[in-house]
Amino acid sequence: MARAVTQQRKIINTTLAWGVGLLIFFPILWTILTSFKTEAQAIADPPIFLGFDWTLENYAAVMERSNYSRFLWNSIIIAGGSTLLGILIAVPAAWSMAFVPSKRTKDILLWMLSTKMLPAVGVLYPIYLICIQFGILDSKIALVIILMLINLPIIVWMLYTYFKEIPGEILEAARMDGASLKEEVLYVLTPMAIPGIASTVLLNVILAWNEAFWTLNLTAAKAAPLTAFIASYSSPEGLFYAKLSAASTMAIAPILILGWFSQKQLVSGLTFGAVK
């Protein structure tokens, strides 16, 4: 509304919004702060907010206790690999659904989404058996495939939404201008679709990174990613707040930073184009 907003109202809004924002963010902030405290300061009564001796000892201790870089590497491979594979399969599917729609396109999309509602636990044992059969239990390849499959409907749907926003007339113009199918995809479609593909990739990296059913149940020593790394701190001997905080910070930092940079694109993608 093009109307003058009183300064007073703006101050109230700002205070309120920042208050709520900080409240929501506080658990994360507290975790990060605690990760730099000594164990004694971490459980001090009353709690110390900022006036503590900053230390990196917890990070050193966590690195020593468990091989963080291997968990991190597993997370990167699993999240990245499943997303890449998913994109490769989803791009042609979404392309054809967006540009050569048939009467069944909508039904196929809804069916795909409905496969996401199949409870994972209902098929846990069969998947477990299949993994043993192929000798890929506790391997990254198994998780890459499984996470690709569970996220595929979302990838297809997001890409479909983005592709649909590319006007069909532009592709027809390319065809009239003499572009072959290959040239049309290479010079016209891909450059226009890249922003959409990028935000789909980001969202799926985040979803795969944070997936905590299959990664916990199908991995042990070899292929465990950061979700499992952090879950190991739920056992009693790991109950040191400062170290727990350090480990948590290390587990979430990469994706938190990635997410902050891309939050705008993420939201529009996640609504499947239903909210503009």
Binding site: V5, R9, K10, N13, T14, A17, W18, V20, G21, L22, I24, F25, P27, I28, W30, T31, I206, W209, N210, A212, L216, L226, T227, A228, I230, A231, Y233, S234, L244, S245, S248, A251, I252, I255, L256, L258, G259, W260, Q263
Partner: peptide, 28 residues
């Protein structure tokens, strides 16, 4: 509503979405 630092508040508010479930459960 109109306010100062809207972008920053958005960043604060969206943060929990990026935290993996095992971490948020343990921290809480």
């Amino acid at each position: 509503q109109p306010m100062w630092g809207q972008g920053m508040v958005r960043i604060l508010v969206i943060a929990p979405f990026f935290v993996m479930p095992t971490v948020s459960a343990l921290v809480w």
